[in-house]
Design a protein around this nucleic acid. Structure first.
Lengths: 235, 235
DNA sequence: GAGGTTTGGGTACAGTGATCGCAAACGAGG
DNA sequence: CCTCGTTTGCGATCACTGTACCCAAACCTC
């Protein structure tokens, strides 16, 4: 009985204390799914595939998870366990940048993450811990809560966007886009783009540096540059 | 023969000049697909469904489109036709904000757009026109091309993020997230979040104002506040 | 009218997520 | 030690997806 399906999966008890004990755990299944996604992409994570890798039947997974989306939610939050949170000092910008670096590293490790993070935005135990840490880092900042939450959302979104771009570099889609761009420009009527194409690629900078630079600009734009310690923000 | 499948769909000829003429057009199919997506979501746009709405067979659509992704690409770019581009004056920030307002309106009209824009990022005729306009607006700004492109990417990403949040307000997922949050906080060990939950919602501001405010902050953070006319950007 | 070429679309196939029902496995109570 | 209640494992199955194949119908050019 019970088992409200409207609840987040982390609020539903994993195993029953009575009856035949389960042979696997959510964590085990999640790990298997993540391994597949890391290697072959999120689309390869089908119930049958995960079950096969675990040496079990597809229908068995539904004893651990109500739907495939549940499994994806578990995968998403599980990556949050890879963060390491140092004690927050007074430097909020540095603290946020540190979080960003980790976020970028995690997303690069799991190329399917950026999409999920920006489209689903599920909140699990590790997500809550991350949020708590960010609020801790931002504690000395005078901005109101809404602004801080927006800054956090922005930090995540920017990182996802950046990693996605980084990963997709030279992908089939990007090559098609580029090919169409030169076609459109060649056909005329796009002077600004034409000028853009004549410019040399200009020695692309290190992605890590670019990321740090952009993130810094955006965060200071949002929160004001209250430097190292405590600071002042615009109203 | 020919018909390189690696090319963007806009580079492939729509109809053959010889043989039996086609009864429909890409535009017609795209419009039908968009109508379905607007009403029932992107997942409802299956080949059979679109074909049924057009009164034809599912397999026939493959005469106009190589794959479902092609159709989705067409849908994405088609929404770009809803932009109206005024002649760019000297006020680049105002110009970008105007683009942002339109972008937000378009995405609100097509709730499936934000996800596609952030995940696929396909570039078609209307996308090229938009890009040209943005570069035109940014012409008086001294920043280098890379920075301008990043600003454009940011503008799009922020708008998508914002509209997504706006649309998902009170959705099943968000309610689950909220429910889990109070659970996690009630369980203790999250003082910052606990403090956050005690605060009153503080009279949510008008989304349009919030959007404009955030976008302004981020753009000036990225491009510097070179006010109305020409400006200066950090190295 | 004949030939060449393209379109329309029924059928079919390999997948997918998810449900159902039953047999097997276990802990607790006697 | 055995039985009972409960839960798990999972094969079979359903509805649905994208898409390849094939052939007849439709059109333009000779």
């Amino acid at each position: 009985m019970a088992e409200e399906p409207g609840q987040a999966i982390w609020l539903r008890p994993e195993h029953s204390p009575v009856g035949r004990p389960a042979q696997r755990s959510r964590a085990e299944i999640t790990a298997a799914a993540i391994a597949i996604a890391d290697r072959e992409g999120l689309d390869a994570v089908s119930m049958r595939r995960v079950a096969a890798d675990l040496g079990t039947g597809a229908a068995s997974l539904y004893r651990y998870v109500d739907t495939r989306d549940d499994l994806v939610d578990l995968m998403t939050d599980a990556t949050g366990a890879e963060y390491r949170f140092p004690a927050a000092g007074g430097d909020w910008l540095g603290g946020l940048l540190a979080v960003g670096e980790q976020s970028r590293a995690i997303m690069r490790r799991h190329p399917w993450l950026p999409t999920l993070v920006t489209t689903r935005g599920v909140l699990g135990p590790n997500g809550v811990a991350l949020l708590e840490h960010v609020l801790d880092v931002l504690a000395p900042h005078p901005a109101d809560t809404t602004t801080k939450l927006e800054a956090f959302a922005m930090l995540t979104a920017i990182t996802a966007l950046f990693v996605q771009q980084e990963i997709a570099g030279g992908s089939a889609l990007q090559q098609r886009n580029a090919a169409y761009l030169v076609h459109a420009v060649t056909a005329g009527d796009h002077p600004r783009l034409a000028h853009l194409l004549t410019q040399a690629p200009a020695a692309a900078a290190d992605p890590a540096d670019r990321y740090r630079d952009i993130l810094t600009r955006v965060l200071t734009g949002l929160l004001g540059l209250a430097g190292a310690g405590q600071g002042r923000a615009a109203p």
